[in-house]
């Protein structure tokens, strides 16, 4: 078996420049099928930029991205979504004036066929499709734990936690094979983060999903991921198993600054 059949997503030498600034520099990266991997790094490290490249929102200056063996470099975002890559956003981007269930129905856009005339004349197959999609949306909302009482509320009126849930449901409803989560635990307390961690594992087990996670909360990262990649100033500075990455001096330095890193190292040496 060639390696790309085991990896659901591969990025090779991805670089993104904005004017003179290099936001992502020569990052290669792979997500093994069915795994949960994390992308970490300090603020401004280029994690979200990298996400946006993977989902087609940005065109990389250099490099290639392949999803299950298919080249998706600079593909249109909607097409990449249709192939099976779904995402959430760091600062929740729901369609505020649509209801929760409508939001999730939009997530299934790529799985629907009704066009202009189908929408106007609404033949039986379109009716059937609408019903199916609505039922699926409701089911997905239940799955992520949204009470059925609020399915018809406008997204803006939902609580923060529910908005996060709807966003995940919206991504899930498209039946993706790879789910990209951009800081899903932002603004959550320890207990909520904990349950989200379990939820991610459940997702993987229930749907055979692969998950890529951008995360700041180290407990979540360490608890859930099989593989961690660290970006700093747009460059990959470390990758590997969570424990190994955590003790990598370069990573400590990126997070804590040089002085602090040296102090810690000295302490450790002293202890030995």
């Amino acid at each position: 078996m060639s390696p790309e059949q085991e990896n659901i997503l591969e990025a090779h030498g991805v670089t993104k420049q904005f004017g003179g600034l290099t936001a992502v520099n020569d990052v290669s990266f792979a997500i093994p099928q069915g795994s949960i991997v994390s992308l970490i790094g300090p603020n401004g490290a280029g994690k979200t930029t990298f996400f946006n490249i993977l989902t087609g929102l940005y065109k990389p200056t250099l490099g290639r991205v392949a999803f299950s063996g298919k080249n998706i470099t600079a593909g249109r975002p909607d097409k990449i979504m249709a192939l099976g890559v779904a995402r959430t956003f760091q600062n929740i981007r729901l369609f505020g004036t649509m209801t929760a269930i409508e939001n999730v129905m939009v997530g299934q856009h790529a799985r629907m066929k009704a066009g202009l005339f189908g929408s106007i004349f609404r033949p039986p197959w379109v009716r059937g499709e609408e019903q199916r999609v609505r039922a699926k949306a409701a089911e997905t909302l239940e799955y992520v734990g949204l009470r059925s009482g609020v399915h018809d509320q406008l997204a803006t009126n939902l609580s923060y936690g529910d908005q996060r849930r709807v966003e995940i449901a919206r991504a899930l409803a498209s039946e993706p094979r790879l789910l990209l989560l951009d800081e899903p635990t932002a603004g959550m307390n320890a207990q909520e983060s904990e349950s989200l961690t379990r939820f991610m594992q459940k997702l993987r087990d229930d749907f055979g999903l692969s998950i890529l996670l951008i995360e700041h909360d180290m407990r979540v990262v360490m608890g859930v991921s099989e593989h961690v990649t660290v970006l700093d100033h747009g460059e990959k500075i470390s990758e590997g198993e969570p424990q190994a990455v955590r003790s990598d001096p370069q990573v400590v330095e990126a997070y804590l600054g040089k002085q602090e890193a040296e102090r810690q190292r000295a302490e450790q040496e002293g202890a030995v």
Binding site: P3, H12, T73
Partner: peptide, 10 residues
């Protein structure tokens, strides 16, 4: 390399 087999973007 898998990357080499991918067609160029443009």
């Amino acid at each position: 390399m898998a990357a080499a087999s991918l067609p160029a973007a443009q």
